[in-house]
Design a protein around this nucleic acid. Structure first.
Lengths: 113, 113
DNA sequence: ACAACATATAACCAATCAGTTACCAGTCAA
DNA sequence: TTGACTGGTAACTGATTGGTTATATGTTGT
């Protein structure tokens, strides 16, 4: 799997609200599937499929433990997202000024008409 | 639009590689649609549709300028993503230790068999 | 051995997505 | 005014998604 494909998978995995809830839950500690499914408004197989997406993106790890499968958070791939975001952080500060300039330009354009 | 829905839109908008390329390009400065489409392996209407998604997520602003529509980056909504990620930053450091523990537990489980 | 439990997967379905081409409206330049 | 340019949108299409129920496999407790 290429570096880019891997990053894409992480962005994709994280784009679903249900999957973010699952990740948030796993910050509290490991959990088996039926526990994760408890709080979610969908069937357990649906949760299983979300977990597969998260597993494919390496955002969770799975371990068989008796008849359960315990899932653990693996936040490492989120660093790809964070580092992409980093490229925008510097823009956040300057942005109010930018918005002002943008609005003024728009006004000038409107007036020209 | 609710706060949560807005955040969801941003995650969704950013999950597409093409849209990330567009945002990356806009860091260099504003650009009209045909310029943005130049470097992308798809038709101009396809780019227009991506821009609409980005606009709906308020990640870009659009201004009519003569016959062109100039797009400008608006990174503000990315802060929602950043703040969600922030909740995971503390896990990154501790994670190598966690991985070790996880592997050892898996080994113990295997041996028990 | 058997019943209940835990979970993944297959098969299916409706909705959404990302692309296409065709078309229309507005703007500019000759 | 006519023709070229810019770009949004509609209509369509095939692929993907996120859910479902049904089924199969392995585990535990009795």
């Amino acid at each position: 799997m290429s570096r880019i494909a891997a990053a894409t998978d992480v962005f994709h995995a994280v784009s679903d609200p249900t999957r973010r809830v699952i990740l948030d839950r796993l910050k509290m500690g490991t959990a088996p599937v039926h526990v994760l499914a408890e709080g979610l408004p969908m069937s357990r197989p649906a949760v299983s499929k979300h977990l597969r997406v998260l597993r494919d993106a390496h955002l969770v790890r799975e371990r068989k433990e008796g008849r359960e499968r315990v899932y653990e958070l693996n936040p490492q791939p989120l660093r790809d997202v964070a580092s992409w975001l980093e490229g925008y952080r510097s823009f956040w500060a300057q942005n109010l000024a930018s918005l002002k300039a943008f609005v003024e330009a728009a006004e000038a354009e409107a007036k020209k008409k």
